[in-house]
Write a protein that binds this DNA or RNA. Structure first.
Length: 262
DNA sequence: ATGCCGGGCGAAGCCCGA
């Protein structure tokens, strides 16, 4: 059995106590992190390796930044999303590792937010999604277990937010964003949480402001997408709300899936 | 609630996030 989690930590340095506690308690076999807000050089690597992980980093100063932690050795395949050599933003890292589920390909994804939706930030988001769709299509051709996990910054359906009306027009809920996400799934990927928990109201992000967490006014934007070969092994998928309730929490909380041994 | 928090940077106040 292999557990793969994804967690937008909103700065690895500010979240060290929280992340170490989560790794110690939950101990995923593979953890995909987003928004580490750190270069590889300033990443607190040693302290986190001591928790029992191999670590691969795609870093950037101040913003973005993604990482993959694995109890098994990692072979890094990409540190940027293919399809635009001019894109410097550290939002994608892909690696291969061998677990008891077999040889497994994983990617940590920090999809652009895209707000305000009437600016070039939204165009960048949609272009980034097109590149992701193209690359995800290439990965399917490998016919191997693939898990694309991360902060997709897309609310797939109205049932994935506390108040759909409040999100009308937002880049996370715009028809174009949701349509691109559907096209990604339609390639043949399984969205683990909604597949195993139909119509369950559950969120992975709660704003720091306005008592959103206390009042459970959240959105579900962190997702785990599985290739058919990975979906065949899928046994469970849950959102772990505990880290969001801790002191100095990220505004996101982890979501994880479990794959049976091959 | 197009920023009320919270983080980075850098040493005040702006940029950014969802």
């Amino acid at each position: 059995m292999t557990r793969i989690a994804t967690f937008n930590v909103n700065s690895i340095k500010a979240r060290m106590a929280n992340v170490l506690a989560w790794l110690d308690e939950f101990g995923p076999d593979i953890a995909l992190f987003q928004e580490i807000k750190s270069t590889e050089e300033s990443f607190p690597r040693m302290e986190l390796e001591a928790a029992g992980y191999n670590i691969a980093i795609s870093g950037q100063k101040s913003y973005n930044g993604v990482a993959i932690f694995s109890k098994t050795p990692l072979e890094v395949v990409h540190t940027r999303l293919p399809g635009d050599d001019g894109d410097e933003q550290a939002r994608y890292i892909e690696a291969v590792t061998e677990t008891d589920a077999g040889v497994l390909r994983v990617a940590s994804i920090y999809l652009p937010n895209g707000n305000p939706a009437d600016t070039d930030k939204f165009a960048y988001k949609l272009a980034w999604m097109e590149r992701l769709i193209a690359h995800a299509r290439d990965l399917l051709a490998l016919e191997e277990p693939v898990v694309l996990g991360g902060d997709y910054n897309v609310i797939p359906q109205g049932e994935d937010c506390h108040d759909p009306a409040a999100w009308q027009g937002d880049a996370l809920f715009r028809p174009e964003s949701r349509a691109a996400f559907r096209r990604l799934l339609a390639l043949g990927y399984t969205e683990a949480f909604r597949t195993l928990n139909p119509h369950v109201r559950a969120y992975t992000f709660w704003d720091y402001q306005g008592g959103a967490w206390q009042n459970d006014r959240g959105i579900r934007i962190d997702h785990l997408l599985l290739s058919p070969q990975a979906a065949d092994l899928l046994t469970d998928c849950k959102i772990d709300q505990k880290p969001r309730g801790r002191p100095k929490a990220s505004d996101h909380t982890p979501i994880w899936c479990e794959l049976a041994a091959a």
